[in-house]
Nucleic acid binder design. Structure first.
Lengths: 234, 234
DNA sequence: CGTGGAGTTGACTTAAATCAAACGCAGTGG
DNA sequence: CCACTGCGTTTGATTTAAGTCAACTCCACG
C-alpha cells in the first residue's frame, strides 16, 4: 500500500516499530460490524483493504453515516478518549484491518512522538472531512449532496489507486448507504441519482461508478478541489 | 481556568512549557473573525474566555456553523495539515485566545510527547462533537435539533462553570446562529424555538438561556448523557 | 427621531418525506 | 430445472415539514 504514492515515506526503523505496535490483522466479512455502537473498545484500527463506514443511530433506528473509510484510513481513535458510547463501524465489502491496542497509545507517543504526530495528522484530516459532510447535510440540497458524495468518493478512491483508467471504480454502496450518508430518504435519493444519470453526469453499472462529467458534478456540488497531498500511514 | 475542575491537572513543568510555547494572547471583539476562511494560517488557538464558532460557507453564501467554541477548546489544528481552504472562526462575544505557532507543532511533539498526546485527545473530543452534529443535521427534525442544541450547549457551558445556580447561562447566539448551526431556515428556527417555549421547555430572557425542563428536552432530542470527564487544557 | 438588527407572524410554495406497489435479479431449496 | 424469496431499485400518488416572501414590532443606538 505504501507504494501507491498516497502516503508519506517511513524509515525502516519506524515501520518496524509500527509492526510491533500492531497487535494483529483481522479479516472482516462484508456487512459485518467492526466496532459496535455503545460498546467501548480500547482498540484502534487502520483499514488495509476494502471499504467501511462509521455511523451513529438514534434510539428509534434512524441512522446517519458519518464518513466512509477507505484503505489507509484510521478509525477508533476517539474511543480511546470517549466517556461512553460513540459510533459503530461496519464493513461495506470484505475488508482487512490492522488492530492497535489503543490503551497503550500514550506509550506510543512517548516512545515515538513522530508516530504520535502522524496520528494527530490523520485525526485532523478526518475532522476536515467531517466538516465538509456537515456543510453538505446542513446546507446543500439533494442534487448537490449526491453530486458531492460521488465526486468526493471518486477523489478519495483515486488517491489510493482504486480508480481504473476509464475513470470508473468499484462502488460498494447501496442507495440506502447513500441516503444515510446524506441525510435523505431512500426514495428521494433514488430519484436524485436518477436525475443526475439522466443529465449524463454519472453511471453505475455492474457495481462500478463512472463519472461521465466530473466538471459538471464539481460545479453542481460547489466542490473545492484540493491538491493531492501525501499523508501518513500507520 | 484550571481551577474549574473541568480540566486535567498539569505539573508546574508542563505549564511552564506551554506558556513558553504560546506566542501570545489576543483579544477579539464580538463578531470579529479570528480565522478567515480560505486563508491558511499556521497558527493554533485555545479559547481563553468568551464564545466563538467555526463555520464554512458555500460560494453562494449559505453558511454552516460546524461547532461552537467554548473556553478551553482548541481550534485551528486542522490548518496545520490542511492542503488548502478549510473553515473560518468568528467570535460571538468579546473573546481572548492563546495563540500557538503551529508550524512548530512537530517540535512540540518531539519535546513534549505528553502535550502532543493531549492535543490528540482534544482533537478526538472535537471529532465526537462533530459526529453528533452530523447526526443532528442529517437525521433529527427541527424540534429535535433545537432541543439538542440547547441541551448540548447547556452541558458544555456547565462543565466550564458558566451556568448559574438557577440553571441559566449567558446565551450569545442569535436565532441566525442557531439556524446556521442546525441547517434550518431562520424563520423555521424561530417558530420551533417559539413552540419549545410554549411547551415550557425553555426561556430566553435578557440574553440568558434557562432550561425549564431539561428532562423533556433530553427525551425530545434523544440526547445521550455522558458523565463529566476531565480533559486536557493547553 | 431615524435607522438597522433581531425577533415574530401570516400566507403561500416547495423540496423532500411517506406510502404503496412493482420490477429485476441472485440465491436457494424442493 | 424452476418456483419461491428477499434485497435493491424504481416509479407514481400524496402528504408534510420546512423554506420563502413579506410585513410588522421592538428595542438599542447615534
Amino acid at each position: 500500500m505504501r507504494l501507491s504514492g498516497a502516503f508519506l515515506p517511513v524509515t525502516a526503523h519506524e515501520r518496524e516499530f509500527i509492526q510491533d505496535f500492531r497487535s494483529n490483522t483481522l479479516r472482516i466479512g462484508a456487512g459485518k460490524q467492526i466496532v459496535r455502537e455503545q460498546v467501548v473498545t480500547r482498540r484502534m484500527f487502520t483499514l488495509f483493504s476494502g471499504w467501511a463506514f462509521r455511523f451513529k443511530t438514534l434510539s428509534d433506528g434512524r441512522r446517519q453515516i458519518l464518513n466512509f473509510v477507505l484503505p489507509g484510513d484510521m478509525f477508533g481513535l476517539q474511543q480511546q478518549f470517549a466517556d461512553g458510547a460513540t459510533y459503530g463501524v461496519e464493513a461495506l465489502t470484505g475488508a482487512a484491518v490492522c488492530v492497535f491496542p489503543s490503551n497503550h497509545l500514550w506509550d506510543l507517543y512517548r516512545a515515538h512522538p513522530k508516530v504520535g504526530y502522524e496520528v494527530t495528522w490523520l485525526a485532523a484530516r478526518e475532522e476536515n472531512m467531517l466538516d465538509e459532510n456537515l456543510l453538505t447535510t446542513g446546507r446543500r440540497n439533494a442534487m448537490e449532496r449526491v453530486a458531492m458524495l460521488l465526486i468526493h468518493l471518486f477523489k478519495r478512491a483515486q488517491r489510493v489507486g482504486l480508480v481504473a483508467e476509464d475513470n470508473s471504480f468499484a462502488f460498494p454502496l447501496t442507495q440506502q448507504h447513500v441516503s444515510d450518508a446524506l441525510g435523505l430518504s431512500l426514495v428521494h435519493t433514488n430519484r436524485t441519482l436518477r436525475k443526475l444519470h439522466q443529465l449524463g453526469l454519472h453511471e453505475i453499472k455492474d457495481g462500478r461508478l463512472h463519472l461521465l462529467n466530473p466538471k459538471a458534478l464539481r460545479r453542481l456540488a460547489d466542490y473545492a478541489d484540493h491538491p493531492l497531498q501525501q499523508v501518513p500511514l500507520l
